[in-house]
Design a protein around this nucleic acid. Sequence first.
DNA 1: ACATAATGAGAGTGATTGCTCACTCTCACA
DNA 2: TGTGAGAGTGAGCAATCACTCTCATTATGT
Lengths: 204, 204
Amino acid sequence: MEIAEASSTQKKIIDAAIKVFSEKGFEGATTSEIAQEAGVAEGTIFRHFDTKKGILQGILISAVTSFQRPQIMVSLARMIEKGEDHSCVSMVKEQLDVIEQQLPLLKLLFYEAQFHTEVQEIILEKIARPILDLLSQSIGKRKNMREFRCFDSNLMAITLISSLWGYVIWKQIASEEETIDEEEALIQVLHIWLKGVQANLHDC
Amino acid sequence: MEIAEASSTQKKIIDAAIKVFSEKGFEGATTSEIAQEAGVAEGTIFRHFDTKKGILQGILISAVTSFQRPQIMVSLARMIEKGEDHSCVSMVKEQLDVIEQQLPLLKLLFYEAQFHTEVQEIILEKIARPILDLLSQSIGKRKNMREFRCFDSNLMAITLISSLWGYVIWKQIASEEETIDEEEALIQVLHIWLKGVQANLHDC
DNA sequence: ACATAATGAGAGTGATTGCTCACTCTCACA
DNA sequence: TGTGAGAGTGAGCAATCACTCTCATTATGT
């Protein structure tokens, strides 16, 4: 199991890097700190990654494989196609919890994409675009059935995703404030969007 | 005009720092680069700011004054209270253009807020909270008139802001793609939200 | 048990960076 | 003319950081 052993060290480094990068940012983090967090010698890092930036790319690669077609988007697409079936909403909620556990990684990638063009391109092509296409397709079906307004499908998908993202981020920032029940909040966000995109009788 | 002269240099430094910080991030930027961009000697920077971080705080202070109650939020609040009056929508669009010009500064502040607690607290207290309160208040009025659904006002405001923010960010990232007309897109985003929060007859 | 590869420990290197400090320039005022 | 305060300068310092090298130690596969 030489590969597994090797990649176990690699995995330790990547996990540590995710933690340190997300706490201090890519430039603010030091390789020695990552080594310490991973419990390996600093030199070991450079046996697995050529440069510090190589670690970031390693994180990206491991993230891309796990975020292609994430389950929450499949659940959202199903919710869109079926309407606001209760089982779908609770499924979305479950998957949202999974996303929140990966929030440091997601924020790290989205934020660092600003400064590293290759990161931005890969995220756009391998994560953002597929997700948008998946949702747009489901939205398109409902549009064809005259059940959704004839707005731009991409735009509708974007308002859905950013509403959810905005809720997640706000929940994290304003954690001290009195907030309504999580499930109720999620239902409200989804209901606002679903009602917002519903077709009027005289539309189109 | 000794004060004006002094603060003119200070303003040059701050403007340069906004540019360099937003391109490379706070940690990725160097004071010598900021000095070069500002057209002053590196030593001059430290006559006006104690430390590199002091520059960031200087940026924050100047941003807070210009983003308290930004005009776009006043326009949005008016739109909420009046419904989707056409003059309001076009006003929102104008103000959105202003926001887009300040996008590097805004993204910089949001990014660095992750790593600098004081920055996060000031943004939250001086910018985010006032804006949310303003919108929540306008939303509350319509709720009282039974014209809006009796959802959480804060949550409704968040879905509105994040939909708009999501549209702005997406427009910037996917600039190469064929996109619909800007004004039409904005109208669609606002219409989705407005219809989404409208009360049903049997609500509440 | 042996050969091979991986790792830990840690000193070392060259480049870079935030910041300092001695000095100059300007200008108001005595 | 002399003086002192304040703004600006840029060479230079001490510290840090990404990355390398060496060597002893451990783990693996046969």
